[in-house]
Amino acid sequence: MSAHDSAANDHAVSGDHHEGDGYDFAHPMPLPMLFTVFAILIALTITTVMQASFDFGSYDVAIVMAIATVKAILVGLFFMHLLYDKPFNLAIFLSSFVFVGLFVILTVSDSRLTSKDFIPVDDAVITSTAE
């Protein structure tokens, strides 16, 4: 038991490269930074609601998603502390979006190729007979 303990201890000490003794590691986020991020997020929310009343045609979805992504990055970097976190955590989190991208792109393009419309129609009124 104690032999195992000391082995783990040695390993941890040798693998412990970052700041000091492992007891003083808290990194409180400065309050002005949090408030600024919150203000920007609210401003972006107002922007995204406002832009919905203008017609940008097919760019609509792109604009909306771009604003949402900026907001998501702000939340991630500052509220979720990723800016000061270990890069490994960031890599893990970002890797999930790589797989989401693969999943969504492959599935959507597949459904685009194979099926025009697979919503079961059980209505009395059928309006779109041909595409």
């Binding site: 941890a12 412990d16 492992g22 976190d85 893990i92 999930s96």
Partner: peptide
């Protein structure tokens, strides 16, 4: 061994959980 090691382990676990959440919602 140290509070930092404990904290980092927990945090890594939490991030992995969040990855599963992202994939779930995707």
């Amino acid at each position: 061994d140290t509070p930092e090691q404990q904290y980092d382990s927990g945090k890594l676990g939490m991030w992995v959980f969040l990855v599963t959440e992202v994939l779930f919602f995707s």
